[in-house]
Design a protein around this nucleic acid. Sequence first.
DNA 1: TTGTAAGCGTTATCAT
DNA 2: ATGATAACGCTTACAA
Lengths: 355, 355
Amino acid sequence: MLRPRSKHVTLVDVARKAGFSPSTVSIVLNDAPLARHVAARTKQHIRETAKALGYHPDASARSLRSRRSSTIGVLIFDISDPFCTLILRGIERSLDSTGYLPVIMDAHNDHKQLEGYLQLLMERRVEGLIVVANWLFEEGGVFFEILKDSFPTIVVGRDLGHDRIRSVIVDNDAGGYAALEHLYNLGHRKIAFVLGPDKLSDSNRRWAGMRRFASEHNLTLDPRRVRRMDAALDPTSGFEAGLQLTNDLLRSRLKFTALVAFDDLTALGAVRAITQAGLSVPADCSVIGFDDSPLAAFCTPALTTVRQPMEDMGAVATAWVLKAAQTGPGENSLPPSHMLAPVVMVRDSTRPPHS
Amino acid sequence: MLRPRSKHVTLVDVARKAGFSPSTVSIVLNDAPLARHVAARTKQHIRETAKALGYHPDASARSLRSRRSSTIGVLIFDISDPFCTLILRGIERSLDSTGYLPVIMDAHNDHKQLEGYLQLLMERRVEGLIVVANWLFEEGGVFFEILKDSFPTIVVGRDLGHDRIRSVIVDNDAGGYAALEHLYNLGHRKIAFVLGPDKLSDSNRRWAGMRRFASEHNLTLDPRRVRRMDAALDPTSGFEAGLQLTNDLLRSRLKFTALVAFDDLTALGAVRAITQAGLSVPADCSVIGFDDSPLAAFCTPALTTVRQPMEDMGAVATAWVLKAAQTGPGENSLPPSHMLAPVVMVRDSTRPPHS
DNA sequence: TTGTAAGCGTTATCAT
DNA sequence: ATGATAACGCTTACAA
């Protein structure tokens, strides 16, 4: 019943076997500053016996005594969402060489349990917090509690439109601009839009970027060709919405030669609708998505999309948190959101309209 | 520089404030057996002051003293692989109510660093280990070391074809059988195959299942319509392989009305090849995949595929590890692999051949 | 019904 | 160049 930790070799065991004191062993095994004054032979010997005995330091004990957990909490909103997952990979990669370990907590898109997860992270004494949010994440008040302790926290992936929370996001405005520019340059003029939910600032910024492009190029964006999806809590609702709203657009009998979707899943819904209507992508209608999720490259036709540099976003967030964790709480000078540039990935779902 | 843990409220703080001893506080806050003999008022009072002070127990200290980390190590081979990710979700869900926390370690498809990650997990004193392997995972010798300590370990996702390692997998043979059966029942007789790498026992078992079906139904499997992909280390190589090998098949001018792919990514490669050849799926050629990865449902045409119950697999693995962790090391009676039944998800990429 | 004290495996501050 | 010793925050016999 009692699964004794005593199965494990401890530092004291090593010390006894090697014939030195625990302190010396600790110092040697950690390459602590004081290790410079330890005889080379001793070091050698200690290292060998440690390995021979199969010694592995106990993380809890170490963390307890040293008052540093060497961990960064990562609160992720849906581990089965490739968007979150790619950011996560960026985080892991940047953490890899630092000696810090990510402690990953998956909220399963459940906003209610948020506080609970946050608590678990705090109990683990993580030294910083990265929140990886997808578009389903609605802002909660919980983070303010943390912020008031000036705990190093950063949100990555979602534009919360909140100036007290540091975040790393893609430049949504530029992305919207670029998407429309791509279609415009191909020669499209009658363009339909399936936008994200009303309150979603990501969606609004993208739309703003598109309107900016339009007004700069005297392109009229006919409101009758614009659809907006409802706020949703289901991860796959984007597909359904894309499908339905595109059907709606199609039924309206208003001609369009291209469609801009809120994101890739929405775009795939649109492709489905167009195809089911007996039309073809891109021959009859071009479609462009947003994100460059892994889906985009592998479907046929491969989806043209505006890429969010998710790994980079993860890396930037990590760099900031690490710095903040090491600098101390004083230094939290609340800079504005960090925005990374999107890139249009031109693939097979867009082409010039046939005359 | 020294980010003192002393920011945190400790149990002693609570005890002082409440006017009780640390032990009483501990007992109350943990609802330990002895708490039954503590005056209700006292409990109430202690709980309140704890909350008022914002007390959160230190996980390290607790784990150190109690000799139980209440964590299960999860070694995952590629966090950006939806296959791994869905299994992971199953694990998380089953762990959720148990008080155990998963400690997730991503190996990034890098077999060399495996040992290092394993060590980190051990240093954290995880009480059990779940290895989530995708098909890129090649068996290493490392696990035997762990096994000889009879540490509760289980592999989920990949059939390692090794009888000393417990594993939870889909019934690949049954899956292969079902895939072919589906096509056969639709009326297909000239069927092409893009199999997985030679050494991969997952692939071999599926193929065995297909041959079993064929021989039971007097269906000849023409070897000229069979292609086999090379072993690969790149996560997306399945797509490329599917694309190339299907092109090859197409060039051979041997007629086939349906194609069985090793997995979904391979299938999508096949769809791409067929489409690029000016043919259409499923009108000219049906395609069936394996896995039911998230891609399958959202591409157009939606992919018919043999579903692996990945969440269930995660759940089964978790249940076993938990039991083993609590039972103690004696009980590891090396049962055979646990196999879950696959399900054919019929969607739009398969239909009867046109006469 | 509650308090005392020991110790989990480390690291850090002194001594020597 | 190395060793004693005291914490870190918590749980748990055992005492009272």
